[in-house]
Amino acid sequence: MVEFLGYAARKVGRNWLWVEVNEGETLRDVFLKYLGLRLENEVVEALMNAFMRGEVRVAVNGRVVGSLDAKLNDGDKILVFPIAAGGDTCFEKMF
């Protein structure tokens, strides 16, 4: 399950998405392969860029990860969240 918080949820247009990953696949696969299928390219790119700039964090099963190369297992919960979540101006600035 991928859960989005704050502006990330607003950008994606929903709070949750379910994706199925294969053994050994990484977070990068989730973003590029699976989220790419369900969301506009521009949205996925914006999320990944914000992650690179350190403005959006990603946690797997509640642990914040430093890179998108983190390997995933079946049933993992992925959380995509802004470093802190506020109102509209922040939304515009981040994405």
């Binding site: 918080l5 704050g6 700039r53 350190g54 403005e55 969240f81 802004p82 470093i83 802190a84 979540a85 506020g86 109102g87 509209d88 101006t89 922040c90 600035k93 981040m94």
Partner: peptide, 17 residues
């Protein structure tokens, strides 16, 4: 990256997170 979040919601921006 924290400015607008704190400005718009203060520490309420991190409760659920």
């Amino acid at each position: 990256p924290l400015f607008d979040a704190f400005h718009s919601l203060g520490t309420n921006s991190v409760v659920y997170q």
